[in-house]
Design a protein around this nucleic acid. Structure first.
Lengths: 341, 341
DNA sequence: CCGTTAGCAGTAATCGATTACACCACGGAC
DNA sequence: GTCCGTGGTGTAATCGATTACTGCTAACGG
């Protein structure tokens, strides 16, 4: 393998000068061109391991996610990756399954691999960021709030819950259930709060039996919705506070042949007696049916990833301001290349 | 940060001995216990960057994928990650968008980061693995065949195409279109071959206008299916050779309010004149509708990832056999935790 | 004309773990 | 008693890039 000394010899300069040329420090122009020529001729590429050891920081960032199979988070990953890659960083994807133990293990690896920074959508409970922060590593929390004093970028989840609920109210639904994620997951709790607030604004009650804390996956949404439909006093609409729960809800309806109600008016006219409305905080990139009856509130996870990655890069560039909290509206940029859903 | 010299001092031994204890070489028992005690007391964890530099290989493996937003590949990633993590390796996810240039860039990074190995589902065209192989790095190709002399694990794609087509034939369909991926993508081509073979076995023709090379994403399947439906001589069933194309096909039908035909018999009885069947090589983890009318041929991408990762680990363990080609049947292990679809 | 300073380049230390090599002690063989 | 082998340990070289430090040269002011 060609090393920096080979380049130095070839260019007739010292290794220090080669390093300086490659890292953009000032060097006499003719030496710089000699170095560039040598680099080109030998096909030299610096060994990133050695660089990391000396710099005490690698050019890898960790992206710690609760569920890589969730299209929401894969879109986040895309956004992060595009930005990071552009800046010459690689992204290691770490999947925690919302398990604090797996999360802790990954944070440990990030620390001891000397990764440049960490982006994390935290599992329930407080993520152990202490060591990383003590070492001065850049950390940005995304999607889910954390207690630590670090940069954070989240959606305004209460507002999202409220808006999605309101769009169901606007369609005439009155008895609206909320299927959300685990109590300890901040997004789940806040969106449910938004649901409660929207109902309250309308003078409606938010009874306990209409708020279900499921898991944030398809099976959670499916079981919760099935339970709601089968119980006495079924709701006339269901708000799913994330995309996968929404998929589960729709599938539960489909399996029971319960028609989808676009508005409360549909409930009388539909063939089934209990046509039900569905609202989703999120969208359905892999829907296999029309979704125009569903009250979707599309988010922009890619933008979340982009913003978080940019904030991390700023820190890696040496920004030393106090921790910033960015709250995104959640409104998606117009994403190209999507099939009209 | 605690370094190996700190441990050595604390334990009253040399750094060499500490290293040996930590790497399982023979050392006098009482020294070993002293080292372990010191490690525990100081909370020492080896710096992986330094280790990588010296060993000339890190404990990171690259997983190069064409599309991380495709649930098929995220499932592959899960499988890889579970195995790799278990063995103490981290996985860097690299998304190529089927773009050979992005792919080449990632392979370059993998080389210069001294990554232990590379798992790759190659973009169209021959991936530039030469440098990695020359350096003796472990490489395993998965899902898509490559020309290089490396370990490979794929499905029997022709058989999959044939089986999926046959299940449509069994349901009585006769004019079966095939919507597949780009010509240069081996899986797309081979599954289409299987389609052609199944038709031939039945004495049926496979006319050119019924074979569409789209992209392997939702919009590709959508546009291709829409085109087939709108053209004269529309098919009575559509075979989608991957999951996303299947999603696109179903959505195209739904948008046109074309009923889904479970068998050729449905075509007469259904309300619309042109109820159409759909077969998919793959499954629909995020379907929002019933899928019992769809001829699904579920695959086991997670198993693919697990197998590929295990093969890579064997190589990393020093296995030095000639390149192995594993062809998986594609039949999924019974995956738990899925909603009945 | 000399001293000071700035700018640039080279030498060598450095990052932290691994490991080649040297060395020592001990046991057995002759 | 000496020699050799073996098994365990320590010292120091090593991986390859970065950078603190030093020194040289040239420009400029007094």
């Amino acid at each position: 393998m060609t090393r920096i000394v080979d380049v130095a010899r070839q260019a007739g300069v010292s290794t220090a000068t080669v390093s300086r040329v490659l890292n953009g420090k000032t060097v006499r122009p003719e030496l710089a061109t000699a170095v560039h020529a040598a680099v080109a001729e030998l096909g030299y590429v610096p060994d990133r391991t050695a660089r990391s050891l000396r710099r005490r920081s690698s050019d890898v960032v960790a992206l710690v996610l609760p569920d890589v199979e969730n299209p929401f988070f894969t879109a986040v990953a895309r956004g992060v990756e595009d930005v990071a890659q552009q800046a010459g960083y690689s992204v290691v994807l770490c999947n925690t399954d919302d398990d604090p133990a797996k999360e802790a293990r990954y944070l440990d690896v990030a620390e001891h691999e000397n990764m440049a920074g960490v982006l994390i959508a935290a599992a329930p409970g407080a993520p152990p960021l202490g060591n990383l922060l003590a070492r001065g590593r850049a950390v940005v929390a995304l999607d889910r709030a954390v207690r630590d004093d670090v940069d954070q970028v989240t959606f305004d989840n209460a507002a999202l819950g409220r808006r999605a609920t309101r769009s169901l109210l606007d369609r005439g639904f009155r008895r609206i259930a909320c299927v959300t994620g685990p109590r300890e997951t901040s997004t789940a709790a806040q969106r449910a709060e938004g649901w409660r607030a929207a109902l309250a604004e309308e003078g409606l009650d938010a009874p306990d039996e209409l708020l279900i804390h499921a898991n944030f996956r398809v099976d959670g949404g499916y079981a919760a919705t099935a339970g709601l439909l089968d119980a006495a006093g079924a709701p006339d609409a269901v708000l799913a506070t994330n995309n996968l729960v929404g998929v589960g809800a729709l599938r539960a309806l489909a399996d029971r042949r319960v028609p989808l109600a676009g508005s409360a008016d549909d409930r009388g006219t539909a063939t089934g007696s209990a046509a039900t409305g569905v609202g989703i905080v999120g969208d359905l990139p892999f829907a296999t049916s029309r979704t125009d009856q569903v009250a979707l509130l599309p988010l922009n996870p890619r933008g979340l990833g982009v913003t978080a990655a940019e904030m991390l890069l700023e820190r890696l560039d040496g920004l030393d301001s106090p921790a910033r909290h960015v709250v995104l509206d959640g409104t998606p940029a117009a994403d190209a290349g999507r099939v009209p859903a």
